[in-house]
Amino acid sequence: TTVKLGDIKVTFDNPEKAKKYAQKLAKIYQLTVHVHGDTIHVK
């Protein structure tokens, strides 16, 4: 599962960890989390 934020891409083996990371980023940057299959976009 890949978390994308602009040019930053972080890949996790564990989808749950990816989701938590995405939510953490979203909170920090006051953005929202969008899940598209294996990719989680923070924008």
Rank of each mutant, 00 (worst) to 15 (best):
T32I: 10
G37Y: 05
D7V: 14
Y21V: 05
V10R: 08
K17T: 12
T2Y: 08
T39V: 13
I8R: 10
A22H: 01
V42C: 04
Y29N: 04
K20Q: 11
L25N: 00
G37A: 06
D38R: 06
G6L: 07
T32A: 09
V3H: 02
G6I: 06
V35H: 08
I28H: 09
H41M: 09
L5M: 13
Y21I: 04
I8L: 13
N14P: 01
D38I: 07
G6V: 04
K9R: 12
A18T: 01
T11L: 12
A22Y: 03
V10G: 01
H34R: 06
P15V: 10
D13Y: 09
T32M: 09
F12S: 00
H41Y: 14
T11H: 13
I40S: 02
K24D: 08
K9V: 14
A26P: 01
K17D: 13
E16M: 10
D38Q: 09
L31E: 01
K27W: 11
K19Q: 10
V35N: 05
T1C: 14
T2R: 02
I8E: 03
A18W: 03
V3Y: 02
T2I: 12
V3G: 03
V33D: 00
E16C: 14
H34T: 11
H34V: 14
K19T: 07
K19N: 09
F12A: 00
L25R: 00
G37L: 06
D13M: 12
K9P: 02
I28G: 02
Y29R: 02
Y29I: 03
K17S: 11
P15F: 15
Y21W: 13
N14E: 07
K24A: 11
L31I: 04
K20V: 09
K43A: 12
K27G: 08
Q30A: 09
N14D: 14
H36F: 12
K17F: 09
K20G: 06
K19G: 05
I28Y: 12
A22S: 02
I8W: 15
A22M: 04
K17N: 10
T32R: 05
Q23I: 11
H36Q: 13
T2P: 03
I40F: 07
T32K: 08
G6T: 03
K20C: 08
D7I: 14
Q23L: 12
Y29M: 05
F12Q: 00
V42F: 10
V3W: 01
V10H: 05
K4V: 15
H34F: 13
I8S: 07
P15H: 12
V33F: 07
N14L: 05
Y21A: 04
Q23R: 08
Q23H: 11
K20L: 11
D7R: 15
V10P: 00
A26N: 03
Y29D: 02
V35E: 08
H41V: 14
V3F: 03
I28V: 08
P15A: 11
E16R: 08
V3N: 02
A22D: 00
N14H: 07
L31W: 05
D13N: 11
K27C: 14
Q30K: 13
D7M: 14
P15T: 06
Q23D: 12
T39W: 06
T2C: 10
Q23Y: 13
L5Y: 13
T11F: 14
T2E: 05
K19D: 04
G37W: 05
T32V: 13
G37R: 05
H41I: 15
V35K: 06
A26C: 15
E16S: 08
D7N: 15
V3R: 01
L31K: 02
K43S: 13
T1D: 02
F12V: 01
V10I: 14
K43H: 12
A22C: 09
T39Q: 06
V42Y: 03
I40Q: 01
F12L: 02
L25Y: 03
K43G: 15
I40W: 05
D38M: 09
K43I: 15
T39M: 10
K27E: 14
F12H: 00
D38K: 07
G6N: 07
T1L: 08
T2M: 07
K24R: 12
Q23M: 11
V10Q: 04
I28D: 07
K4R: 11
P15R: 09
T1F: 13
D38T: 10
A26I: 04
K43Q: 12
K9I: 14
T11D: 05
H41N: 06
V42Q: 01
V42P: 01
I28A: 08
L5S: 03
E16L: 09
L25E: 00
T11R: 11
T32H: 08
T2L: 06
H41S: 07
L31R: 01
K9D: 06
